[in-house]
Nucleic acid binder design. Structure first.
Length: 394
DNA sequence: TTAGGGTTAG
């Protein structure tokens, strides 16, 4: 039994299909491409819609075609039902490579790194040639799981399969090492790349910044422009500004702000939000507010950043005023918003306001998040501690 | 099948 078969679930399908017959030839009749069902599937945006189209696929015998089999696998994965995708995959007798590639993507996105690695090994033992996308997905999963051991193994597979000069694959390798904290290896791989575009420069620069080497990150910010003539984009500045914020480096943050103004990157809402965060964390909450007020478009993240900027810098009254302003704008608060507002209530010892926010949390069904519950407990504990110290004075 | 980098809290 191949490993991917072991990954199957015993859960019944949410629909019933006849067994897929073996398709000896890779020829796909032109009527399949012209069939309206193919177009309907392309336009499918939900599991509900897909289930409505399934009878059409069965009625027209389209389930016999590789094109539709692969599309079904892809759509089940897209809508999060890996179980159904696995069932379809297993029913096909003569699988084609794209089916394996789609299933691997599904495992990465809707299961665990372990199951994706298991599926990959099954794919190789079935004689399927990996494509560069496979490595991008697998390395991203290793990075997200901080699993450098698995990352190294995939890096080895990538070399064996001839992708060590591919800019997409190698950027994923650099990202994986950097995210796992092995920045020296990330840089070694970056140096060996025959072609380095803005994305891989951004990746290695963000790697240094996020691993606490802000000066080196800043050096690369300048080097990418001076040595290779790349123009840092919105991703570059959004990658380095949080490091300036977290290290309280106002000087570097202001220098990035200068670049933002010069390059016309202010139109990006995430750039402006990162600037608000940087100023607030560097102790310049007034400047943060100026940047915030000048934003032509604000997202919930922008509001959260400013509210929390006030709350963390002891401007709790302002934080709550801005929180009210956000509600007046009819914006839906997120977990981060209510956590920031609760921090402000705790600082003020304002139990009444805290209870109002608690009611809002219940109304918006935000109370299941552990982080929100922790903030609520923290607010109540602070109030209790205030009352205790007050009583002890009496 | 159709790819790689980025913002708020903890």
């Amino acid at each position: 039994m191949t490993p991917h078969l072991l990954a199957s679930s015993t859960t019944p399908l949410s629909f019933s299909l006849p067994s897929f017959p073996s398709q000896r030839t890779h020829y796909i009749p032109s009527h399949v491409y012209k069939h309206p069902t193919a177009i309907l599937l392309e336009l499918c945006t939900s599991m509900k819609e897909l289930q409505q189209f399934l009878p059409l696929i069965i009625k027209n015998g389209l389930y016999k075609e590789h094109l539709f089999q692969t599309k079904l696998i892809s759509l089940f994965c897209k809508f999060g039902s890996l179980t159904d995708a696995v069932k379809v995959f297993e029913l096909v007798e003569d699988k084609v490579d794209p089916m394996y590639h789609t299933m691997l993507k599904g495992h990465v996105h809707h299961s665990s790194l372990a199951s994706a690695l298991w599926f990959y090994s099954g794919m190789i033992s079935d004689g399927v040639l990996p494509v560069v996308y496979n490595f991008s997905y697998l390395l991203k999963s290793c990075a997200d799981n901080f699993n450098v051991k698995a990352g190294k193994m995939i890096h080895g597979q990538l070399i064996v399969n001839g992708f060590s000069r591919n800019v997409f694959a190698m950027t994923s390798v650099v990202h994986m090492y950097a995210k796992c904290g092995v920045i020296e290896d990330a840089y070694k791989m970056f140096e060996r790349m025959p072609e380095r575009d803005l994305v891989c420069w951004n990746t290695v620069m963000a790697g240094y910044a996020q691993n606490g080497m802000l000066n080196r990150g800043m050096e690369l910010f300048l080097q990418m422009q001076e040595v290779e003539g790349h123009r840092p984009d919105e991703v570059t500045v959004v990658s380095i500004l949080p490091a300036c914020a977290n290290f309280g480096s106002l000087k570097m943050g202001m220098s990035i702000h200068g670049y933002v103004t010069k390059s016309g990157l202010e139109s990006f809402v995430n750039v402006e939000t990162a600037l608000v965060d940087m100023y607030a964390k560097c102790g310049q909450v007034g400047t943060a507010r100026l940047v915030f007020d000048r934003m032509t478009c604000k997202t919930v993240v922008s509001w959260n950043t400013m509210i929390d900027g006030y709350a963390q810098s002891g401007n709790s009254e302002e934080a709550l005023k801005l929180f009210d302003g956000m509600l007046d704008e009819k914006l839906r608060p997120s977990n981060v918003t209510v956590m920031a507002a609760l921090t402000a209530c705790a600082d003020l010892g304002d139990l009444h306001r805290g209870q109002e926010i608690h009611a809002l949390i219940n109304q918006l069904e935000l109370g299941s998040a552990v982080s929100v519950i922790n903030s609520l407990i923290s607010m109540l504990r602070t109030k209790w501690a205030c009352d205790q110290s007050f009583e002890s004075l009496l």
